[in-house]
Design a protein around this nucleic acid. Structure first.
Length: 485
RNA sequence: GCCCCCUUCGUCUAGUGGCCUAGGACGGUGGAUUCUCAGUCCAUAAACAGGGGUUCGAUUCCCCUAGGGGGUGCCA
């Protein structure tokens, strides 16, 4: 058996949506799992959708996710060029070959005639759009004559009129259609350029693609592709059609709907490893209960036959959960690197960043959760002294005042201003007062942050923001309580 | 209109005729634990679209219905 070769063939639209990334991942895994090659082909022939810098987005997205391609526009290869617009010259000869084999024919029908035809079909209640095969049996001499006269033409595929055509899909099984349903589709347009349907088949064959991995919107067209392979006498590839990634039960995820692209998600503080891992499982499942995989593990475990048939709804809540897990699994050092820009975007004063990050790590699902959690460090928010009331410790504002007044001198005396140092100064008071630690320390957190939920307990916050600021805020908190009680 | 495809907890899914009193994960709920909140641990509710067959036995096979998606371009 020949070496497995798969390709990812995106349009450079400037928007890598997660469904595309997933298709790229599946194609990559299908190749790598079999020890085969992964090819990148840029399909840039749709000028309307062409966007500057879009190719770089494709390169960068694949690269930063480790989806390394063996052949592509930038790295070359034996089957180039890998940019479709540079291949435009090669298709017409293949179409002419088919004409000579009697598998295709020249059609001189004008767009006007076709439009009229469609109207008539509509009026008669027939299937709209199907060409009436007017030029299919034109005498050879007439064809020659009109060609020589420079009449505009297209080349159409000659479809069988009876019987059925099928293909076997790895995911969907056998898909069969009546040949009578098939239209004599255009292969070469009047401008001499190939249609997508034609170029795609020729490109895949010329590039030696053995496994075609793509979205299932091509399911209905694939029988026609198989007919093309047969007309040329080429071997058909293994087809792997993937169900779409949905926004909800009715609509696909798309740029048009303003749905988040891969790069949007990264900008929001999702880790690329988490995104890829989530995408892996969106429509595919391994045998077994494990869910967290590195790229290497994905390659080992991959089996394209386990792709699910049904559409999958993209669930941001579950992605957040995956992201939280990935954040939790990073080392402390690594997390500091990730979190630093988010912290420093709002905190401009000196703090114990390492300690803050240790406390932040289990408390954020995505990196962009960070600013709102640490903003209090830069500036105390307005807050109500009602925050001091706590059911669990049965404390009131009055208790808080007592606690803070006890705490202040104890903390003023602390020399070792670390988390442990601060806590050691508080512990004796807990024993002395015969209260729970929370009774004493919960008010501290409020006094230092003006918030009920902080990254870490009172002693953590104190250690993070430093002695000077801690004492200042405690004094302010005591004054506020005295004034408002 | 015609053609193709899909349908298991709210969501992602396991399940290929008996192992299913339908499993896991996220989310939900309840509890334990910690100086708040998280995290962690434990427990719990929650699904085979509907109707016919086939079979000793259907989530699994067949048919119909419903719902959904896609295709039907000189777009890709």
């Amino acid at each position: 058996m020949s070496k497995v070769r798969t390709r990812f063939a995106p349009s450079p639209t400037g928007y890598m949506h997660v469904g595309n990334l997933r298709t790229a991942l599946y194609a990559f895994l299908t190749a790598r799992n079999a020890g085969g090659d992964f090819i990148l082909r840029i399909e840039d022939t749709d000028q309307e959708r062409l966007v500057d810098g879009a190719v770089d987005i494709i390169y960068n997205t694949l690269k930063e996710n480790g989806l390394v391609w063996d052949e592509g526009p930038d790295v070359g290869g034996d089957y180039g060029p890998y940019v479709q617009s540079e291949r435009m010259g090669i298709f017409k000869d293949y179409a002419v070959q088919l004409v000579e084999k009697g598998e295709a024919y020249y059609c001189f029908c004008t767009p006007e005639r076709l439009a009229k035809l469609h109207e008539e079909q509509k009026a008669a209640g027939e299937a709209v759009g199907h060409y009436d095969r007017c030029c299919r049996e034109l005498p050879r001499e007439e064809v020659e004559r009109r060609l020589n006269a420079g009449e505009p033409y297209v080349i159409r595929q000659k479809m069988p009129t009876e019987g059925t055509t099928y293909f076997d899909d790895l995911i969907y099984g056998r898909v069969e259609v009546e040949n009578s349903e098939l239209e004599d589709q255009i292969l070469i347009k009047s401008d001499g350029m190939p249609t997508y349907n034609f170029a795609n088949v020729v490109d895949d064959h010329l590039m030696g693609i053995t496994h075609v991995v793509r979205g299932n919107e091509y399911l209905s067209s694939t029988p026609k592709y198989n007919l093309l392979y047969a007309a040329f006498g080429w071997e058909t590839p293994v087809y792997i059609h993937c169900p779409p990634v949905m926004k909800d039960a009715h609509t696909k995820l798309s740029k048009r709907n303003g749905d988040a692209s891969y790069q949007d998600l990264v900008a929001q503080g999702y880790l690329k490893e988490a995104i890829l891992n989530y995408l892996l499982l969106l429509g595919w499942s391994p045998k077994g209960d494990e869910e967290y995989f590195t790229l290497d593990e994905m390659i080992k475990r991959w089996n394209p036959a386990w792709i699910n048939k049904a559409p999958a709804i993209f669930d941001i809540v579950k992605l957040r959960a995956f992201n939280a897990q990935y954040i939790n699994r990073t080392s402390d050092e690594e997390f500091v690197k990730l979190a630093r820009p988010y912290v420093e975007s709002v905190v401009k004063r000196p703090i114990n960043l390492e300690l803050l990050c240790v406390n932040l790590k289990p408390r954020c699902e995505i990196l962009s959760d960070i600013p709102a959690r640490v903003a209090f460090i830069q500036e105390m928010p307005e807050y109500s002294i009602e925050l001091y009331r706590n059911k669990k410790f049965k404390t009131t504002e009055n208790d808080a005042l007592v606690a803070l007044e006890k705490l202040l001198p104890a903390l003023e005396a602390v020399q070792d201003w670390s988390r442990q140092g601060v806590y050691d100064a508080c512990a004796p008071l807990v024993a002395e007062l015969g209260v729970k630690a929370g009774w004493l320390l919960y008010p501290l957190g409020i006094a230092l942050s003006g918030m009920q939920a902080t990254p870490g307990g009172g002693t953590d916050v104190a250690a993070v923001i430093g002695k000077e600021l801690t004492l200042e805020r405690m004094r302010n908190a005591i004054a506020k309580l005295r004034a408002e009680l």
